[in-house]
Amino acid sequence: MILVFAALAIWLAGWALNMALARSWFGESRAGRISIALIFGGTVLLVWELLVRGLEVSPVILPPPSVIGGKIAESLPVLWADFVQTVLKGALSGFVMGCGAGVLAAILIDRSPFLQKGLLPIGNFVAALPIVGVAPILVMWFGFDWQSKAAVVVIMVFFPMLVNTVAGLQASERMQRDLMATWGAGYWQSLWKLRLPAAMPFIFNGLKISSTLALIGAIVAEFFGSPIVGMGFRISTEVGRLGLDMVWAEIAVAALAGSALYGLIALIERGVTFWHPSQRH
């Protein structure tokens, strides 16, 4: 019971500290914002730890963070191998291929009204396919290894990328396009110097959405057949063995990888679309 009260006390203390920080001049600075986030995260972990121990929750229901941390520390080689298999080989390669295909298809669609009528509905149709139905089929087609996972990811990210890029290519203003015409610019010049730059905020929206979809797709696809390595494979087998601490360890890795990929894209976005009102400071 003491542990539960300690959890409550720590929660209140962390909250009070963050409130005070947020109001002070320090909270405005970059270091201040980061420390507020760190204090919040630390508080959550501590409260989790104390509550689970204080209330004697079964480790199958929810293991304390210290146990998950210990599991991560002792199985680093396995986690690394799973990470390479699922994130680097499956998710990232599928992400790059799917997003690239989405942008290229959007440019084709933009160029030809015929494709606009044909390709958009097909993209829509593919996006509506349930992943639990598509994944086993793609595993049959492309084998157990990462290629089939990449294929699932391609299907998942293609449509959001396509729709965002198509919208982005229409985002330039009429006057800006008229200017290009007055200079006698050709289609590709106008695409390269005006319409693609103007589409960048949309393209980055698509990339951010796709980055999380890619990870989900790669992990879930492994449930339908994979070699004996991979985050999805590990999660599905460890659940069967009630090794929930390992499941949580994989979840932690997946969350970190997803956040890192998202953060990286957001960082590049700030560099590329610095001119957009949403990025100006």
């Binding site: 006057m175 008229d178 200017l179 290009m180 007055t182 006698g184 730059p197 679309t273």
Partner: peptide
């Protein structure tokens, strides 16, 4: 052609905007 609004491309500097038609030509 000079339009009602300046219509400068926000991702280019002023010099970059003026250079744009020259690049195209």
């Amino acid at each position: 052609y000079v339009f009602q609004a300046a219509g400068l491309y926000p991702w280019r500097t002023i010099a970059g905007n003026i250079r744009l038609p020259l690049e195209i030509m």
